[in-house]
Design a binder for these strands. Sequence first.
DNA 1: CTGGTCACCTGGAAGC
DNA 2: TGCTTCCAGGTGACCA
Length: 270
Amino acid sequence: MPELPEVEITRRGLLPDLAGKRVSALVVRQARLRYPVPPDLAQRMVGRVLAGVERRAKYLLFDFVDGVLLAHLGMSGSLRLVPTGAPLDKHDHVDIVFGSRALRLHDPRRFGALLWLTPPAQHHPLLAHLGVEPLSEAFTPQWLHRATRGRSAAIKQVLMDSRVVVGVGNIYASESLFRAGIDPRTPARRLSAARCARLVPAVKQTLEAALAAGGSSLRDFVHSDGSPGYFQQQYYVYDRDGQPCRKCAGTVRSLRQGNRSTFYCPRCQR
DNA sequence: CTGGTCACCTGGAAGC
DNA sequence: TGCTTCCAGGTGACCA
């Protein structure tokens, strides 16, 4: 499920319940995730107090005094708080136990990750080369214009390049380009300053809207079982091939870019 | 450096 | 009904 909004919603849901709590146990049932769960993770974490939870790109960073637990949800991961010892579902791979409650990682496809980073965490290879946060003030039209010079790849693929801007996945890349009225196949270097001035706010608005929608189902997202990640979220184009465009009543089309599906409205996006 | 392709893994839906 | 094929929200490795 997770693109940036889902990861941020998870972070906001966990923070008030877990900040200041001490890890009492770690249970690893399946260590084979994207990277192996470190064998010494329990030694690192048990007995330590969680100081806070941050997010960088789609990574969740659980801060402890002497290190950081990095979590990534991959394509299918979720983190939920459950009563300690709650019945297990298939693919419930790891429990981080905080006394009477446990943070449970569920991830059918196992593209997610749990790693221990020693300070300075931002120097870790997974974090060191990440681009700008799309919801930060650093993500400006001028910045995007400069970053796309010399890039012949399609703007949709550049939007999804985490060395440029982080957190924009396959759904929100299509949605953002629709909002901006830009053809996803446009070579990035050919985006004018004026088009960058449309695209940057479109990305921010798309992510903010998803955050607002997810926020309304936050309780379910974190606490209950198998809850939907989205609260009746309506997409403009994603997964709507052949259906009428919500703006012009033309027909939404799909194509493949770099082995990923792209959805767009040929009339609204040029 | 860039851009293109593939692999990792499981499960659900569609096709036959 | 059962088997096969395709597809899925991410991202790093590998190649030219």
